[in-house]
């Protein structure tokens, strides 16, 4: 192994992880930040951080769950950077703006949910983390995450029905 100064424990090609988990990480970022530049920024920073750490990742790590946790930290960084700059959110479309593209309408609906529901859906429903781990990430309890996730799905169903997405 050529890398110097680091003990290489993980020998899987990084590209395979990008291909396999890229879509899921983007869903998580979009659920937390909306389907705009912020989610793209968080996705890019997630995979750059993952690439830096990649060779030293412990063998047997659940890559998918690890990437979702990295994405959570990067999403928080994006939110912090934004609040420092105090730039208005690019999540919600203006009232008179054209309807969002069909493939992204779900993320505009998610953006309208209360934060607790949104985060529960992001890390549990879209990220695939168990209730307990999601609770640790967002400072909640497993029971509350379970409730927030199912309330979130119910709300989404209502929002999509109002928008005529579900017939």
């Amino acid at each position: 192994m050529r890398l110097q100064g680091v003990e290489v424990r993980n020998g899987q090609p990084f590209e395979a992880a990008v291909q396999e988990h890229g879509p899921r990480v983007l869903r998580v970022c979009r659920a937390v930040l909306g389907p705009g530049h912020d989610a793209d920024d968080a996705w890019s920073e997630t995979f750059l951080a993952a690439l830096r750490a990649w060779p030293t990742l412990d063998r047997g790590t659940n890559i998918e769950a690890w990437l979702v946790r990295v994405a959570q930290r990067e999403c928080i960084d994006v939110i912090r950077a934004k609040s420092r700059r105090a730039i208005p959110s690019d999540v919600l479309p203006e009232p008179d703006s054209p309807p969002p593209p069909a493939d992204k309408s779900i993320w505009y609906a998610v953006a309208r949910l209360p934060e607790k529901q949104r985060l529960a859906l992001a890390y549990h429903y879209y990220g695939g983390l168990p209730h307990t781990e999601t609770a640790e990430l967002i400072g909640s309890t497993p029971a509350a995450v379970r409730r927030a996730a199912s309330d979130g799905i119910a709300s989404l169903r209502r929002i999509l029905a109002e928008n005529g997405e579900i017939v």
Binding site: L26, S44, D103, Y125, G128, L160, I166
Partner: peptide, 21 residues
């Protein structure tokens, strides 16, 4: 499909993100 936790993502979006990575 719109509530599928593995709902598909536009290939063009992923391609652009990959190029940026």
């Amino acid at each position: 499909p719109s509530l599928d936790p593995a709902s598909p993502i536009d290939v063009a979006d992923l391609t652009a993100l990959h190029a940026r990575l």
